[in-house]
């Protein structure tokens, strides 16, 4: 079972490596941000897999913190970086 978890973790890491291309290529800032956001989700999955594979339950807490805080960067991006049309602003 451990082997399966680790194999899945390796697969997810390869996913991250592939997603990095989207960050590097763009083309728009939103594409890059969403790729980074996707890594947050992937990271949570990898952490949960490793928690089982390494038998370290505390890693679930790390995954929990990740899941809670990963959205912060996206919110900061939308509120502070991304251009909004003037009619959207109350």
């Amino acid at each position: 079972m451990e082997k399966l978890y680790l194999a899945l973790a390796v697969f997810l890491m390869l996913n991250v490596a592939a997603g990095l291309l989207r960050i590097l290529r763009g083309p728009t800032a939103a594409d890059r941000m969403l790729a980074a956001q996707l890594f947050g989700t992937t990271g949570v999955a990898i952490l949960l897999l490793l928690a089982e594979a390494q038998a370290v339950p505390a890693l679930r807490d790390v995954a929990l913190v990740f899941a809670l805080l990963a959205a912060l960067a996206t919110v900061a991006f939308v509120k502070r970086v991304w251009y909004r049309k003037p009619e959207d602003i109350p």
Binding site: G26, T28, A29, V81, W82, Y83, R84, P86, I89
Partner: peptide, 8 residues
Amino acid sequence: EHGGEASE
């Protein structure tokens, strides 16, 4: 809140 460009 107003103005500013998209960073791309």
